[in-house]
């Protein structure tokens, strides 16, 4: 077995065989899901808690579906229904969940490092479903699986990640995964949205879409939050779209068969033009969602292999 971690907290630090194994396992679940078969005995009797301190319908649903397809008991805890709003600390919440003997804990939090803190306290295997501006490992895995299935490989591809790199956990996880697996990774965006010394992560920085997208095999767009305008990092949505929004003219700089990705939810007309987002040939955005369920099934399967507590 290659994957040696108890948790999945980050892509950073994973070795190529570990990533490769997760992707292969996920791919087997793509076929299973499409065949309409189920494997509901795999996680039977196990409890998966979706602990979401930040709203996210799509990621939570994806984990819920993945857990149910493998037969786990899935419980969703949202921030509005939990006691976190009543002054209970993250540590208390973790201790409570621990006492309930949950096996798999999926955590989304607006603070970088929150899943690492939880992992120190709980017995369950912790899966980071997005923490602050740190990492979103299952997103990077599903992106990689999408790329692999479309392009037949990952190594050697040119991938341009475009937009708000500074505030994106998706960008960080993808940078780690894609550089580890041998891609040439570029980040493209205005200097105010490029984090300090990001080149040291093994990427090339561009501030111009034409240069950044030239000969790219994959164009990965990121969501631009409205907050960036109010905080003055970008003057306006229309100015952003003019220089960094992906439309047909800018996509033309990439390879003719380049695919377009977006982790969602999209701001149409801000970072991506609807005509591109909905392009049935170039856009793989819907496929990303499908891969998301398979990747999460693979991750749940892998982590529960190392953590089967009720096994006799």
């Amino acid at each position: 077995m290659f994957y040696r971690q108890k948790h999945l907290l980050a892509i950073e630090g994973l070795e190529p065989p570990e990533i490769g194994q997760l992707l292969d396992l996920a791919e087997s679940y793509v076929l299973l899901n499409r065949s309409g078969k189920t494997q509901r005995d795999l996680l039977r009797g196990r409890t998966l808690i979706n602990l979401f301190f930040e709203d996210s319908t799509r990621t939570r649903t994806s984990f819920e579906l993945a857990g149910k397809r493998l037969g786990a008991d899935v419980i969703n805890m949202g921030v509005s229904t939990s006691s976190v709003n009543k002054g209970e600390t993250l540590i208390d919440t973790a201790a409570t969940l621990n006492a309930m003997h949950c096996d798999l804990l999926v955590v989304r939090h607006d603070q970088s490092g929150a899943p690492n803190l939880l992992a120190q306290i709980v017995d369950a295997a912790v899966i980071n479903a997005g923490d602050g501006t740190h990492e979103h490992p299952t997103q990077a895995l599903l992106d990689a699986l999408t790329i692999k299935r479309r392009k037949g490989r990952i190594a050697g591809l040119i991938v341009a990640i475009c937009g708000d790199i500074a505030h994106s956990r998706v960008a960080r996880s993808n940078i780690h995964l894609l550089t580890t697996m041998g891609c040439q990774v570029r980040v493209v965006g205005p200097p105010t949205l490029i984090p300090a010394q990001v080149a040291d992560l093994g990427v090339t920085v561009f501030h111009d879409m034409e240069a950044g997208l030239r000969d790219a095999d994959v164009v990965m767009m990121l969501r631009l939050q409205r907050e960036r305008m109010s905080k003055g990092q970008v003057p306006s949505a229309r100015e952003y779209f003019r220089f960094y929004g992906l439309d047909a003219a800018k996509l033309a700089f990439a390879k003719p068969d380049a695919i377009v990705m977006h982790p969602g939810p999209m701001n149409r007309g801000v970072e991506i033009d609807s005509a591109i987002a909905d392009d049935p040939v170039r856009s793989v955005i819907k496929e990303q969602v499908e891969m998301g369920v398979a990747v999460r099934m693979g991750v749940l399967d892998m982590l529960s292999r190392g953590n089967r507590r009720n096994e006799h």
Binding site: S112, G132, A196, Q197, V198, D200, L201
Partner: peptide, 9 residues
């Protein structure tokens, strides 16, 4: 720094 960038801080 690079470290803060990695950690998303």
């Amino acid at each position: 720094s690079e470290q803060a960038t990695r950690l998303g801080l």
